[in-house]
Design a protein around this nucleic acid. Structure first.
Ligand code: SF4
Ligand code: SF4
Lengths: 152, 152
DNA sequence: GCAAACCGCACTCAAAAGGTGCGGATTCAA
DNA sequence: TTGAATCCGCACCTTTTGAGTGCGGTTTGC
């Protein structure tokens, strides 16, 4: 399904919050007080982002995460790539799996090449969308609004 | 996962074949002799495409499917839309589901708007890719190549 | 009448996504 | 020193989605 995973959304939200608090060490708890997200899963995602080198972690009592680069150098593509792998878009062209022998149609596939082209474009779009552009557009939203949601 | 479903690929392959045999009534059997695909599932897909008005069906002994429009007017977007619904890209912005009450973050979501923008772009790409462009690029491939695949 | 094709529903099976349990290590601060 | 807060790592479970099939029916041409 042509859709981003929830994990990716969580990651983006977390990164946006990290960017807003530029430089500060931010705990998962704080992120989940800002947005009504499952704490544990967000932690999972942050861990993956740290593995991918997008954020740095500080352990201990006042620990948390910080951006590893400036928001200008952090793209949507980086996040997607870190959390979902490069977008294959088709079953073949996937650098990861290729299990089960791959697609039988491949040698005669007429749609492989055109779809590959679409994939490249999509990827370019993602890589040209920086975290900065996500933050700036919402820097003026009211922060104090009590959402009053109950999930976790 | 940012990926097209196999059903969509099957649909595209079928449509390409229909386009190649312009106007002719083509049976599912013939498509599956051309490409090594699970016959039954392709039939399922064709049925969906017919429901969406992309192909016409003819019943009976010499029955099969034909394109409902010319390849120039049939876009990748039409196919994806028919088989997967419009690409939501995010959990919200999905015109179909919205079950479970939708996303709790929505009222304060900083990434909704930018991602929506990406989605629009993607959608435009898909809608500007016609079936014709898929066919023409492979009109010269050798058709008699015996792939020698065993599935189905 | 028979065979070939589409029609329609519902059902199973497998994979992916989403989320959690639990114990451990690290740091800070009282 | 003690304890609370935080990240760490692995494995596990549950829900959702995707892929494919069973089976009987209807339509059409020979
Ligand atoms: S070879 Fe063609 S049909 Fe097979 S996975 Fe790639 S694009 Fe899809
Ligand atoms: S509101 Fe934001 S977090 Fe929620 S589904 Fe939409 S984009 Fe994702």
């Amino acid at each position: 399904m042509l859709q981003l995973t929830k994990r990716t959304e969580y990651g983006l939200l977390a990164l946006v919050h990290l960017a807003e608090r530029e430089g500060a060490v931010v705990s998962v708890r704080e992120i989940c007080e800002r947005y009504p997200l499952p704490r544990r899963t967000v932690a999972e995602v942050l861990k993956e982002l740290q593995h991918a080198g997008l954020v740095d972690s500080t352990r201990g009592s006042n620990g948390g995460y910080t951006l590893a680069r400036t928001p200008e150098l952090l793209t949507l593509g980086d996040v997607v790539s870190a959390l979902e792998g490069a977008p294959p878009l088709t079953t073949c062209e996937s650098p990861i799996v290729l299990k089960g022998g791959g697609c039988e149609v491949q040698p005669m596939c007429p749609i492989k090449s055109p779809i590959h082209r679409v994939r490249e474009r999509l990827w370019q779009m993602l890589e040209h969308t920086t975290l900065r552009s996500l933050v700036s557009k919402t820097a003026h939203v009211p922060l104090g609004a009590p959402g009053a949601v109950e999930s976790n």
